[in-house]
Design a binder for these strands. Structure first.
Lengths: 181, 181
DNA sequence: ACCGTTTATGCAACTGGTTGCATAAAGGCG
DNA sequence: CGCCTTTATGCAACCAGTTGCATAAACGGT
């Protein structure tokens, strides 16, 4: 379970409030781990109770920003978790189930959906490549930036895979549409 | 939500009981959608209540196999669902969170874990290639088999990506270990 | 025939994540 | 100033999936 550790990482990069975290989860970190604001607030409270983070701003009830920073215990916990072994999660994708279903029940509208997915993956790929071009233009980089670059490259690789796969799938499904319309 | 439709697909391919389904979910279908036996039994009951499937064998209480087959309403539901639009799920991987954490808190044991993942992905890749060699040796195939092959190819592509990525990650992390041990 | 193991089915509790809604304060505008 | 919108925080209910345990029948060796 990664959310608390994703939050610790984000807060170590820069202390901030729940809503700011939500914003950052819509961008960089959130490209690879999403969280809604409810999850974030719930988790921040829990992390505070655990003594891993602490609020910076003076208390102010609702509607007021509460910035958090990581305590030594939180940093230690993050270090512990980062080195912990983790089984790779098996693939799990609805599209594969749909393709198997198509194979059994015959042609459906599935190819339309895949065409739209292809467009979305191309868009995402363009975005990642743009970020890469902007943030990692040269070769030699610090350890931290090399690791950040690596994570971004995972995004590029994954979106590239999806683009390739969608095209393959469309080829199979569309050929079939022609043969037996 | 795919489980009911994965079950409908599996039962259309061949009617069978909960435990047999669990077995099949450990193999072919389960390479891309996993389910525990509890999920399967719970869901079979629900599908029966919905009138999408029906038990074949005479009732026999516990400890006795109950085979199910799909009813026309179930087939119709599967067709409806298969053509339904579906947003591509964003990437979500703990390893990326760990890499970001490593970037912030400095070297940990993470590289050991990635080495072990690499081995597992290589194993899985070999398995998929072996299945491919055995089940899809020639070029020309029926629509159904082309689609099944396509899904298997997704597995090959995904595992290949992971192998590449793990190697890249190890290169970055190991180089760093040497520079600042 | 008996007893231990395996197979098949199932309940209950829990976890991580999602959805829908609520409320307090701040900000912008007539 | 008063009002409407936006931002920030939060609760409660829900949903899919997991874990731990239980029980009934079948299987297999002695």
């Amino acid at each position: 379970m990664s959310l608390p550790h994703a939050l610790l990482t984000a807060l170590l990069e820069r202390p901030c409030s729940g809503s700011e975290l939500a914003g950052r989860f819509d961008r960089s970190i959130g490209f690879f781990w999403q969280a809604t604001h409810q999850q974030i607030y719930r988790e921040l409270k829990r992390l505070e109770e655990l003594g891993w983070i602490t609020a910076l701003e003076p208390e102010a009830g609702r509607g007021r920003k509460r910035a958090y920073q990581v305590l030594p215990a939180g940093r230690e916990e993050l270090r512990r978790w980062t080195g912990e072994a983790q089984e790779p999660k098996p693939l799990r994708d609805e599209l594969m189930v749909r393709l198997r279903a198509e194979a059994v029940i015959g042609p459906t509208d599935l190819v339309r959906d895949i065409e739209s997915r292809l467009a979305q993956h191309l868009e995402k790929l363009a975005l990642y490549r743009e970020i890469e071009r902007r943030d990692f233009p040269d070769g030699a980089d610090s350890r931290q930036r090399e690791l950040q670059h690596l994570v971004l490259q995972a995004g590029v690789m994954a979106e590239t895979l999806w683009v390739d796969f969608c095209r393959k799938a469309i080829a199979v499904l569309a050929a079939d549409y022609k043969n037996k319309p």
